[in-house]
């Protein structure tokens, strides 16, 4: 397990795959591999990223290794009927096409064993509302990188509330976004980076 955690941290694709297969063969449960092998790896990566010990490339590489390992585990988890407890609908708001930051947030959320439905970029308020309904989500994560598209966050929150989703938590982030802005537009949480996004998401669902 420890080795798998390290392989993810180092972004070692081949090792991550091999070790996952070995653990499965040795009879480890898929969920255990996720929770004790992969997730701690991604959590470490997120912490190191937050404290500037590693940077965007290292994080992308680690996430790629985790994704590869997950592709071996996911079918088994589905077959066993094991699904993550919480679902986050994630997307870059309308008019905005930046997705690198949002993708990192998605990767760490998945790493923390939270289900992520990624709607991609340029997502309209209606699409967010529809996805919340379809996936019975607990959190909506909105990303915006442009000062102009930040305003679409407000519209999206309004649309969610108007559709009656008052208890769905809205978490926002992106370079121009601040905690103050989050408060102004009635978001439930803000996080400055991907690792804090995971902490905040957990906090919001347990609050």
């Amino acid at each position: 397990m420890q080795q798998l955690t390290e392989a993810v941290e180092m972004g070692n694709l081949t090792d991550a795959k091999r070790l996952t297969d070995e653990l499965l063969k040795a009879g480890k449960a898929p969920l255990e591999i996720v929770e004790q092998g992969l997730s701690p790896g991604m959590a470490n990566v997120g912490e190191k990223f937050k404290s500037n010990q590693i940077f965007v490339p290292e994080m992308l590489i680690a996430a790629r290794a985790m994704k590869e390992a997950m592709s071996h585990l996911e079918p088994l988890l589905v077959r066993a009927g094991i699904t993550p407890k919480y679902t986050v609908i994630l997307g870059t708001v309308q008019g905005d096409l930046h997705d690198i930051g949002k993708n990192l947030v998605g990767m760490l959320l998945k790493g923390a064993n939270i289900r992520v439905v990624d709607l991609g970029i340029n997502v309209t308020p209606d699409q967010f509302v529809a996805a919340v309904k379809e996936h019975n989500a607990s959190i909506v994560g909105l990303s915006a990188l442009l000062t102009t598209t930040m305003l679409a966050m407000k519209t999206t929150i309004k649309a969610l509330r108007a559709a009656g989703y008052d208890s769905v938590k809205v978490l926002i982030g992106g370079a121009p976004v601040t905690a103050q802005f989050a408060e102004e537009i009635g978001a439930d949480g803000y996080a400055p980076d991907a690792a804090s996004a995971v902490d905040m998401a957990k906090k919001l669902v347990t609050a």
């Binding site: 490339p57 930051g101 400055p192 980076d193």
Partner: peptide, 9 residues
Amino acid sequence: CYSGGPLLS
């Protein structure tokens, strides 16, 4: 660079 620092270590 982006808000969090350089895009490369």
